[in-house]
Design a protein around this nucleic acid. Sequence first.
RNA 1: GUGGGUGUAGCUCAGUUGGUUAGAGCGCCGGAUUGUGGAUCCGGAGGUCGCGGGUUCGAAACCCGUCAUCCACCCCA
Length: 422
Amino acid sequence: MSVIKGIKGVKDLLPEETPRWRLIEEAARRWAARYGFHEIRIPIFEVTTLFARSIGASTDIVEKEMYTFQDRDGTSLTLRPEGTAGTVRAYIEHNRAAIPVPQKYFYFGPMFRHERPQAGRLRQFHQFGVESLGMADPQADVEVIALLWRILSDLELPGLTLEINNLGYTADRDTYRPHLVTYLKQHESGLCANCQRRIEANPLRVLDCKVPECRAITEPAPRLADSLSEAARSYFVRVLAGLDRIKIPYSLNHRLVRGLDYYNLTTFEVTATNLGAQNAVGAGGRYDALVETLGGPSTPAVGFAIGIERTSMLLPESTIRKTPEDVTVYVAGFGGQGAAAGFTALEELRLIGLQAVSDFRSATLKAHLRQADRLRCRFTLIIGDDEVAKGSGVLRDMETKVQYDVSLSTLGRQIYALLSGS
RNA sequence: GUGGGUGUAGCUCAGUUGGUUAGAGCGCCGGAUUGUGGAUCCGGAGGUCGCGGGUUCGAAACCCGUCAUCCACCCCA
């Protein structure tokens, strides 16, 4: 019989790995709460047109990376490739714009993109993201960027850099694009095949190309910064001033062009080394037109998303070790009477709030102690037939080997006292 | 979608120009120790050599195909 295996690019998170994930998730939730963001839980699949309209019909995500399928009535549904579209859809659908305070949400969950898996890239991956809706103020940008930076710094990820750029308003990019295209066409022969195609499809993307030849050509190219309107410039200046004020270090990257169409003005990305060919741990930007594009009231917004798998890859052991392990009591019940008494004691320990385990396969004390050792239990409660006869048990400290007699009738209280004293 | 690497014991990997019975370390099980874990010593179990064809007297090794996986391109978190 053939064994059924997991889907390509879709990973199981085994118990050895979940603690580090929980650490990341808890840090993100903690910081998000401090910044006034509230959790929203949105579906993992939506009507396909939601993503096509928001992310951009000609982006790679929409063109070739979506998990799309037909519902029974024929409507096209898609597994979410990112979290912003669904969040904005929910914002509109529940008329959150009518609420007189800024709507600041965070979400955590799986996203799906049909790509070839490699280091730091999976078909089902996880993001923690935030969306700050309703404020067209540079301080809102700064607040969101600060939150991103604080979460990642708190986790002590090594080698982080915050890169930031100003995409300007749509009109700014419209005036800039022809200048860039003209320049690129003059140097077309020197560009990589991909970039030659991009000249027509998405010229700004050429700036983001990693091919050295392309980089050399685009270095002296006309810059978007020179085509920006006064309003866009001053907005960006205020964002940077805000970052300076609260001491968030950043570096300007005029090549930073995000892959999703809905961004405008501020865009940013936190990059790291040691991520294989990938380098973005978290990224985001402002998207003032998206809510309206999706049929909602004109609503300015900023957000970001963190890649959890990538964060996990970078998470140093030292950060994980800071979390203290809970003390677990192993109960070694053996023999005709002892096994039964042990099982009762096991439950009693749990009822008073302790973590207690046993391996019911073990029939001898030796076997039990071996399992207690493997399970890394700090204490073992030994209950054999002799103990049952005496109405007591033996609590053994596995590290010091010191043993205490405990009465079976008042087990819970005694053990609790001994453990809290240790 | 394209390119490259790797598939041998539970894990990490050796395996000579194709040669007889495929190995090591770690782990696992048992014993030394019949009520005291880890350490040590002794013993033991465990393999469709990814799968399917082909070449050959003979294939883990060579050839073809296929699948899986990793890495990279592309793109992104």
